[in-house]
């Protein structure tokens, strides 16, 4: 019984210059407890897909079940079971780290005491304890990202959607985040769907990879399977082969720079 399944999930944006088919029908199944890596070039439709699965954006086609609930019929039930960290975060510059964490807990229905305790626990887990009383604009990019992440974890969601969670993190924080994601899965059985442009990250963290390009799934396999299928030594080469953006043929004419 998959924890996420979609059938023909699609989204077309209407813009002044005509329709933009951001997602053209994605069929996806994710097993409970799986770490799924969603890969794809810029503009492939990864964020749009996550925004649909997290109830933020109504699909223009298709259907999906998330954590046992129909996305369109019961979005409220879906919301209670998922956590989402957006690509560009979501911090209010007028608030402190502590108040953001506490508010998040209370938005998920915790009382003040529980939300406060949970805020401290999360700060401890993500190395934010020293920063609790700082306003969010006074955080570094990586600290801000860790706070975004803490907010997504507040209610211990069954499914965690992370949109480029490690962009802007230093190597140490990135390794910490990988460890955190593995621990969530191992200790709590959390299902994690994450997008990334770092193929080493996809390689070491994800159980399975789904590559999207132009709004459709173009490949789907384990990191090892994907490499094998394309006779590629690295995931990088496999990715380039799958998305048709193979290494440029060696050109003999000198390039003007």
């Amino acid at each position: 019984m998959p924890i996420i399944s979609t059938a023909g999930l699609a989204r077309t944006f209407t813009t002044r210059s005509g329709p933009v088919e951001a997602v053209r029908g994605i069929d996806l199944t994710v097993r409970s407890g799986e770490i799924l890596g969603l890969l794809g070039p810029n503009g492939a439709g990864k964020t749009t897909t996550l925004r649909m699965l997290t109830t933020l954006l109504p699909p223009t086609g298709g259907a999906a079940t998330v954590a046992g609930h129909d996305l369109l019929r019961d979005p409220a039930a879906v919301r209670r079971r998922i956590g989402y960290v957006a690509q560009s975060g979501g911090l209010d510059p007028q608030e402190t780290v502590r108040s953001e964490l506490v508010t998040q807990g209370r938005l998920y229905g915790m009382n003040r005491a529980r939300a406060t305790a949970r805020a401290e626990e999360l700060a401890d887990d993500l190395g934010l304890t020293e920063l609790l009383d700082r306003r969010t604009p006074a955080l570094s990019g990586g600290q801000r990202r860790r706070l975004d992440l803490a907010m997504g974890l507040t209610h211990r969601p069954e499914i965690l959607f992370l949109d480029e969670p490690t962009t802007g993190l230093d190597p140490g924080s990135r390794t910490d985040l990988w460890a955190l994601v593995r621990r969530l899965r191992d200790e709590h059985g959390t299902t994690v769907v994450l997008t990334t442009h770092y193929l080493d990250e996809a390689d070491s963290l994800a159980d399975r990879l789904v590559v999207v390009d132009n709004g459709t799934v173009v490949a789907e396999d384990s990191p090892a399977g994907l490499k094998a299928a394309h006779g590629a030594a690295s995931l990088q080469d496999a990715f380039l082969a799958v998305t048709g953006r193979g290494p440029a043929p060696v050109d003999t004419t000198p390039v003007a720079v």
């Binding site: 997290t54 109830t55 933020l56 409220a76 919301r79 209670r80 998922i82 989402y84 957006a86 560009s88 975060g89 979501g90 911090l91 209010d92 510059p93 998040q104 938005l107 998920y108 229905g109 907010m151």
Partner: peptide, 12 residues
Amino acid sequence: WGVFDRMRVTPV
């Protein structure tokens, strides 16, 4: 700021 979406994704 992304705050609106962050709240919208909660069951509030």
